[in-house]
């Protein structure tokens, strides 16, 4: 007689039915009733077959799905790592050193609202359609949230904790490493997560606008050829990778950020 569990299970069934209904309606509207032309929205079975086929077939964009994923992930990692390595120290310096804050903050405030997407043409003019161009776009998408979060993480350090450290004779430098940084860690971590999301978005935009490989490129080829099954496979792949990344971050956060994050 466990009512709470029974109700939970009931909602799980509803979720399952809802999912099946969604697929059912999609199938009915496309494959059976043909309400929309196949080039506009293929039926779910077609999407699944294309998805499976893309694992070994190189048409129409010249690479298998895994090759495309690797091409995208490679660029994303490159830009992301650079963004993190530069962004976090910059943010920490801005939050900890008054002079740096005063000089860099206004410039940063001006740069912050520029969507990295807007820089794509600049990079294409500079570097052509290349790995560097995309990596720099992703760098910008990463560096801004990293700076924002590590800056505000340091800024939100509890003044009392700093005073406590001072009364124990900690130097300014020791205060940073023993008090400010650890207390900013959850914030910085949240920044890494946001950065991952925005760099993923930057990557897709860069690949749509100028690229010769990657999932974004595959999607834009799909569009050019009116192969909406390819587009949807691409979008779903992006979504799945997005989920994997966020699961990975959940695990990392559990491992690294102790003492609870700010939620």
């Amino acid at each position: 007689m466990n009512t709470a569990k029974r109700i939970n299970r009931k909602y799980k069934y509803i979720s399952l039915i809802s999912m099946l209904a969604f697929l059912g309606i999609w199938y009915l509207a496309t494959a059976v009733l043909k309400l929309v032309p196949a080039y506009s929205l293929p039926d779910p079975v077609k999407v699944i077959t294309t998805f499976v086929q893309k694992f070994y077939m190189k048409v129409p964009d010249g690479a298998t799905l895994l090759q495309n994923i690797w091409a995208s992930v490679k660029v994303a990692m490159l830009g992301y790592v650079f963004g993190v390595v530069i962004g976090i120290p910059t943010g920490v310096a801005m939050g900890w050193i008054k002079a740096v804050e005063k000089i860099v903050r206004p410039v940063f405030d001006f740069i912050k609202p520029i969507p990295p997407i807007a820089l794509i043409p600049v990079m294409i003019v500079f570097f052509g359609i290349s790995l560097q161009a995309k990596a720099i776009i992703i760098f910008f998408s990463t560096v801004i949230p990293c700076i924002v979060n590590s800056y505000s993480g340091i800024k939100q350090t509890n003044q009392i904790h700093l005073w406590v450290a001072q009364t124990f004779g900690a130097t300014r430098r020791q205060q940073l490493f023993t008090v400010a940084l650890p207390s900013a860690l959850p914030m910085i971590f949240a920044g890494l997560r946001v950065a991952m999301g925005s760099s993923w978005m930057g990557l897709v935009a860069a690949e749509l606008l100028g690229s010769t490989s990657g999932i974004g490129y595959m999607i834009s080829v799909g569009r050019a050829l009116l192969r909406s099954d390819i587009i949807i496979v691409g979008i779903l792949t992006l979504g799945i990778i997005g989920i994997l990344i966020s699961v990975m971050f959940d695990l990392l956060e559990k491992l690294l950020v102790r003492g609870g994050s700010e939620k």
Partner: peptide
């Protein structure tokens, strides 16, 4: 989890 810009082609 689908990035907003990915909807453009569709």
């Amino acid at each position: 989890p689908i990035p907003g810009v990915a909807w453009i082609p569709l």
